[in-house]
């Protein structure tokens, strides 16, 4: 089956940790049952010494066929375009990325950092970090808008901070089993099968959203209401399957009372974390959310909200997720 090389640039290893949480298939299943040939991985790699170095160079020179190149973390271009903020095995990591991407059948960016720069690229972007084929929402990134892998595909982006293990494993299995042709990507190169839906799709608070009933406090306050109105939840504006494919097989942030921070979108962390923006809904005239659900506008939103509040049944104003 497919050969996979996984490297980390300006990364926290969160996507690797997330990947290790996978079941069906687990990382062990992928290798033992699916025969994934994991050439090397920073935390799982077996080969030592000359053998490990040889793997990188053999792939970079095209001597070993590299079916899937997985990259986690930003590409660091600083200081002054040298890449010396991130040196790996005696070379700036950006040089490895350049060489390996050129030889790979498919290039997969795992997590926001590799997709579009993520948190390290937040203003003032001290390391001159960027993503593989996007910088935030702008096309280009490190490899450039015209980059295509040997299979003729752009970089496949699996965003999230971190990406959910199933998004990673299912895409790897799809690629490795010859289903690359089934992958429909959106304009941000995300597989639509996961990222067409909204984070809100399947959220247990969606009935409160329907009747515009707000959560008013954290803690026990999250036993009722929707987090969109006061706590900056980005569930209606964010594309992810977080409430379709649960986290750690148990829950999701919004289910557990934490507002979605929009981490599958290129702007994460939103507003560059400016004072007054963390866990707080940005509002116009102190009332109307500055950002309304995707595809809506302020006027229709307000009309809808007014009607919804009138229609709100009593239960929507009470606790639902009770002891």
């Amino acid at each position: 089956m497919a050969s996979v090389l996984w490297l980390q640039g300006g990364a926290c290893s969160g996507n690797t940790m997330s990947f290790l949480n996978a079941e069906e298939p687990s990382v062990v299943d992928l290798i033992v049952d699916f025969g994934m040939d994991l050439l090397w991985h920073p935390s799982l790699g077996v080969e030592l010494g000359a053998n490990a170095q040889k793997i990188f160079w053999d792939c970079a020179k095209g001597d070993t066929p590299l079916d899937i190149f997985v990259f986690e973390g930003t590409v660091m271009e600083g200081p002054n375009g040298s890449g010396r903020f991130d040196v790996f095995a005696d070379r700036p990591m950006k040089d490895w990325v350049n060489d390996l991407a050129a030889q790979a059948g498919v290039v997969v960016a795992i997590g926001d950092c590799a997709c579009w720069g993520g948190i390290p690229a937040t203003e003032p972007n001290p390391t001159a970090s960027t993503g593989l084929q996007f910088h935030k929402r702008a096309k280009g990134g490190f490899l450039g808008n015209n980059f295509r892998s040997k299979m003729g595909l752009p970089v496949i982006n699996i965003p999230g901070c971190p990406a959910h293990p199933d998004w990673i494993t299912q895409i790897i299995v799809a690629l490795a089993s010859g289903r690359a042709g089934d992958l429909a990507l959106d304009e941000l190169h995300r597989p639509q099968t996961f990222f067409k839906s909204f984070t809100q799709t399947g959220c247990t608070r969606v009935q409160f959203f329907e009747y515009k009933q707000s959560t008013m406090a954290f803690g026990e306050g999250t036993r009722t209401g929707c987090l969109f109105y006061e706590f900056g939840c980005r569930g209606p504006m964010t594309h992810s399957p977080c409430n379709r494919i649960l986290w750690n097989r148990q829950s999701s942030k919004t289910r557990a009372g934490m507002p979605c921070t929009g981490c599958t979108e290129p702007e994460f962390p939103f507003f560059d974390l400016a004072p007054g923006t963390v866990f707080k809904t940005q509002k116009v005239s102190g009332v109307v959310p500055k950002e309304v659900p995707e595809g809506s506008d302020h006027l229709t939103y307000m009309a809808h909200a007014l009607a919804a509040r009138v229609a709100a049944p009593q239960w929507s104003k009470e606790d639902m997720f009770v002891v």
């Binding site: 803690g219 986290w247 750690n248 557990a256």
Partner: peptide, 26 residues
């Protein structure tokens, strides 16, 4: 998985906030 029950997910939840936690467990 226990972390996710209280925090929504692991890794990278931000459910601990000044004054307490975001969840109201059942």
């Amino acid at each position: 998985e226990v972390y996710a029950i209280f925090g929504g997910q692991w890794p990278h939840s931000s459910f601990m906030v000044p004054g307490g936690v975001m969840c109201g467990p059942t």
